[in-house]
Amino acid sequence: MLEPRKNSVAHLATSFKILTRRFTDLALVGAALGLMVMGRVDVALIERVRVTTVDAVAPLLDALSQPTATVSIIIDRVQKHIVLDREMTFLRQENDRLKHWRNVALHLETKNQKLQKLLNFTPDPALNYISARVIADPGRVFVRSMVLNSGSSSGVREGQVAITGDGLLGRVVKVGYQSSRILLLTDINSHIPVITELSPSRAILVGDNYDRPQLAHLQAITEVTVGERIVTSGHGGAFPPGIPVGKVVSAAEGNVRIQPFVDMSNVEYVRVVESGLSGFLPMNPNFLKGDKNP
């Protein structure tokens, strides 16, 4: 009886093993399919979670970024205010200085008026200006002159003084209807009554066709220093007084040379001065032709 039982047990064990193998294979295949499906499902889920998280955090990031931009704007404005405050301080100081000098000028003007009344002083005639442009510079060996685009039609006449913003340039010697010619102070025919500011001493500024005219007819006891300013004296009624002419650049052995304030090589616009003075004699036409003799 034991043999039939053993055979049946063995048969059952064999059947169980075969069944187990089949189900195991199916389970493994199902697990593999499940993992594949779950992998795809997880990727989509992760993507959805990521998008949802970004959407949720975006307002927070925006709120955090706005204070940063606001702080940057505030810092920039503070820096600008600091610069403006410094500039305002400088401008206030400069304004205070200008007010001081204005008060000094008004005080001196009042004092000057009182002194003029005491001396019965007759003021110089008022100056009128005619603006003109240099259109030609026909300087030759013996004549240094310039041609202006204004003539008698603009009120220019012979004997008027030509100046720039730097000082004296020369005087008008020939006038046409729409043009005029000025003789430069460096020309050999130019003789201008001047006065030294520091000495003060009268003299004649004599042109010699060089860039630095000579100061002549100084008093023997006069000591002219280098750097001293020279202005027109107004004597003889030819030039208004006080027009800046130049400064002394050399004073060796009585040969005093002046450097004009006006750069003759760089003149574009000129102001012709009408002062009401009439101290000029008519210019000899031979002067403009290069003849050095009157």
Rank of each mutant, 00 (worst) to 15 (best):
L2S: 12
L2I: 11
R5K: 11
R5I: 10
K6W: 00
V9H: 02
H11F: 02
L12P: 01
D25C: 05
G30P: 00
A31E: 03
V37P: 00
V41I: 10
A44G: 07
R50L: 11
D55V: 10
A58W: 03
A58V: 10
D62V: 11
L64E: 05
V71S: 14
I73G: 07
I74A: 15
F90R: 15
L98D: 01
N103H: 06
A105Y: 02
L106A: 12
K114Q: 08
L119E: 09
P123G: 11
A132S: 08
A132G: 07
D137K: 10
R144P: 00
M146H: 02
V147H: 04
V156I: 14
G167A: 05
V173S: 13
V173A: 13
V175N: 05
S180Y: 04
I192A: 11
S199C: 08
D208W: 01
R212A: 13
G227H: 04
S233A: 10
G234M: 05
A238F: 01
P241L: 06
G242E: 04
I243Y: 03
S250M: 05
G254F: 01
Q259A: 14
P260G: 13
V267D: 07
R271K: 06
S275R: 07
N284M: 06
F287W: 03
K289A: 08
